[in-house]
Design a protein around this nucleic acid. Sequence first.
DNA 1: AATGAACTTCAGTTAATCTGAAATATGGGT
DNA 2: ACCCATATTTCAGATTAACTGAAGTTCATT
Lengths: 304, 304
Amino acid sequence: MIGITSLRVFVHVADCGNIRDAAARLYRTPSAVSMTLKSLEQDLGAPLFESDRKNRLTALGAEVRGIAAEMLREHDRALERVEAVATGRQGRLQLASVPSVAAELLPGLLAEFLDARPGVTIELVDTDSRSVHAMVADGTVELGIAGVAAPAAGLSFAPLFRDPFRLVCRRGHKLAARAHPLGWTDLAGERIIGNNAAAAIVAEEYRALVAASTLRARNVISLLALVRAGAGVTLLPQLATVSLTPDLVALPLADPAAEREVGVVLREGRSPSPVCRAFLGGLTEACRAPISAARPLDGAGERQ
Amino acid sequence: MIGITSLRVFVHVADCGNIRDAAARLYRTPSAVSMTLKSLEQDLGAPLFESDRKNRLTALGAEVRGIAAEMLREHDRALERVEAVATGRQGRLQLASVPSVAAELLPGLLAEFLDARPGVTIELVDTDSRSVHAMVADGTVELGIAGVAAPAAGLSFAPLFRDPFRLVCRRGHKLAARAHPLGWTDLAGERIIGNNAAAAIVAEEYRALVAASTLRARNVISLLALVRAGAGVTLLPQLATVSLTPDLVALPLADPAAEREVGVVLREGRSPSPVCRAFLGGLTEACRAPISAARPLDGAGERQ
DNA sequence: AATGAACTTCAGTTAATCTGAAATATGGGT
DNA sequence: ACCCATATTTCAGATTAACTGAAGTTCATT
């Protein structure tokens, strides 16, 4: 059988015009090249060169050289692509994330990641935690970044970081003057604007407060607009508060349990694609050493 | 390094959904397939299948399968082409021939040859012997069929058959009544129409006769038209006379030296392409056993 | 005809790949 | 939850393919 290596040897010899140089290029001895060539000619049943000095091709040799050279180019290109895909230098990554991470953490990370891997395509969807889990579960996206959810069948959750909730109010609000973290009792009488993120808070006191409230917003933009307009105050994870406009402030809470846990959601039993794996590496690293992240996580605490 | 055989094994397993069937297709034992697959995954640095039962691909596996399958198709196609070219089932044959052979011998031979080799292209030029040699010498055609010429540098001549000259005249001509082969003296007083083919006759007597003649034609059509019109008689190789119209006859000559030798002209030091070699095989066979040829050579002698 | 460079041949070695047997893992059925 | 049939993996030994280095041959040149 004619092998691809034989043809590669032949093309090199045809290019070089002699065996010695071709052998050097192939990191083989001339004798190895000579034998390979001989067996190729035997397989073909006809000579490829006119003379022993391999500087003139036969008609057959010229045809075979053309076909083989093209085939080798295709082959090498395909192999390169396979390797690129396997190492995550090429491929598509579909991911879903909660808005806060998508807005504050991902932009810098993704830009850096794409710069380093020109062959990679990324599709990012930002939606609430519940939808992120759903999209991972049904295969719409490969990777999700969200808070913990009820342990659904076939999903895995790996924690990335914990993120304490803050009270967001107008700068002139009376609570903004408080020097110490706020207890739940401090919020009595305030109108709490409910939101999806804050649904992660398990404290009974908060649940009672928000149950009493009559206002609820889904989108962060409109939520903050309500606060800015004096319609009430709200609770948001710290990460969602790092880019507040100057007329709003984010105040720490005393309850250490008032926090969400953000992590990575994957489909169980599906080994992530190399692109995904590579991105996960960058993501966990960015969360372990937040200083290097585009927007520091802990650094947002300077208003405390 | 990732080899083409590893990828072929992988694609087969992916197609079959299990190792056992793939091994059967590949004429290998399951253990060999398993090991090949393992080493491929090691080379890639990531798994290609989700589980040991090879019925679900990873994201990487799916991508690699696509790339590899295409690459293998290209590879196999190229290899097939190489083999077809090497065995003469595919390729182009440019040949030049003297008109008599081109008209009487080649048509049937070429038709048969092309029927047996659908991938072959043939380009046929018919011209006089001298031009045939020239076209072979300058590489315009690979193969020539012509009479012997002055031994030119770089050309080889291999005899195919000898072809005696005949006198061509009108059926009512006085020479047509002669029961025996004609001697040169019998032609005294006849107007001999000169032609390219007859230039191969070396007999002094003929040379004198034709030198005395004032008429000469290059093309066989016009040559025969002249004879038919009673402008004179001419000498043609027997092969050129097998399809004469009924108003003309071809009479044998007594001089055994009045013949041409037709053979194959090739460029020396160029090994012929496989198509050419295959055609040469058919050609020499047809000339050795002329009964099988479309138009028999010796059978034309029935008028003698 | 002698010379030197390039190629081929040969025998022995090395590396890759395969086989068959045994061990291990998997998934359906009870 | 366990068992069984089936599939896969592992391992050691065997086979095959490919390579090296030395010696021999061929070819063009002087």
